[in-house]
């Protein structure tokens, strides 16, 4: 029963992600109106035939902005995942494998964890300036530490495995051991962690936009739309409904996908990789 439940929710999750990818890729084709085109005559009009999700305070098409926002979200989340995973794996594996730098590196990572991710990201964006790349780096830095911790723990465990001892005893070089034994055994948990990183970074990216310290307002993103739509909470609830629902569905789908991947790829490690 539970398995069935999990299966079809997992299916829905992956399905939604697929739809999202296609939508983002085909954004200009799908949307009849440009996301930037303003039509003051029809501002704040409710959902209708032409404007399926209504219009905002500048008379821009909410549907078109939501679809283009999917692009922004996927690029943003993807960027964070790439950044955090690449550097996190490097830092974690280095700390786990090289005894000499281990205490310093892990102490630094622990201290970094003392800063709430959103707070750290806010400060970094404020220093670096608003902009897609800066936002991705700022949020990426905050997730780097979590990936590093997971990879560090995995490296420690794998390092003790008998097959590593066997390889060392057999005279295999360090580099070859890392490349051929350590990394492949970490792949599944890293993929799972990356999926959760994607899900949670979307929430942070949206929060940055909402607080006015994220992606520049000119770029349509779900967070920016909510930030602007907030003023019309009662007059034009569709401004909040659609982008908000998109964030929830996307994050939910990636969380479900992460859970499914974790169960599937590595039930043994399912406890050590926590989606938080």
């Amino acid at each position: 029963m539970r398995f069935l439940f999990r299966r079809w929710t997992a299916l829905l999750g992956f399905l939604f992600i697929a739809v999202l990818l296609i939508t983002a890729a085909a954004a200009p084709v799908i949307t009849p109106v440009s996301p930037q085109a303003m039509n003051p005559a029809e501002k704040l009009s409710p959902p209708s035939g032409l404007y399926r999700f209504g219009t905002d305070n500048f008379g821009r098409d909410v549907f078109s902005r939501v679809v283009h926002g999917a692009r922004t979200s996927l690029i943003g989340g993807g960027g964070v995942v790439l950044f955090a995973t690449a550097l996190g794996v490097l830092a974690g594996a280095a700390a786990g494998y090289f005894r000499r730098i281990e205490p310093y590196l892990m102490r630094l990572i622990d201290v970094m964890m003392a800063f709430p991710p959103l707070l750290l990201a806010l400060v970094l964006v404020s220093i670096l300036g608003r902009g897609m790349l800066n936002v991705v780096v700022a949020v990426g830095v905050t997730y780097l530490t979590r990936t590093a911790r997971v990879v560090y723990a995995l490296t420690l465990r794998i390092r003790e495995e008998p097959y590593i001892e066997a390889a060392v005893a057999g005279g295999v070089s360090q580099a070859a051991i890392i490349a051929r034994h350590v990394l492949p055994n970490m792949l599944s948990p890293i993929i799972v962690q990356a999926t959760f990183t994607f899900a949670f970074s979307l929430l942070d990216l949206a929060a940055l936009d909402f607080l006015g310290l994220g992606i520049p307002p000119a770029i349509p993103s779900w967070g920016n739309m909510l930030s602007e739509g907030r003023l019309y909470l009662t007059r034009a609830p569709w401004l909040l409904l659609f982008p908000g629902a998109c964030i929830v569905l996307t994050v939910l789908s990636f969380n479900i996908a992460g859970d499914a991947l974790r169960d599937r790829l590595d039930p043994r490690l399912s406890r050590s990789v926590e989606g938080v």
Binding site: L203, F210, L226, L233, I247, V248, V251, L252, G275
Partner: peptide
């Protein structure tokens, strides 16, 4: 579900 909702959207 609640872990997937943006706090500010829930608040609004």
């Amino acid at each position: 579900f609640f872990a997937s909702i943006p706090t500010f959207w829930l608040g609004l």
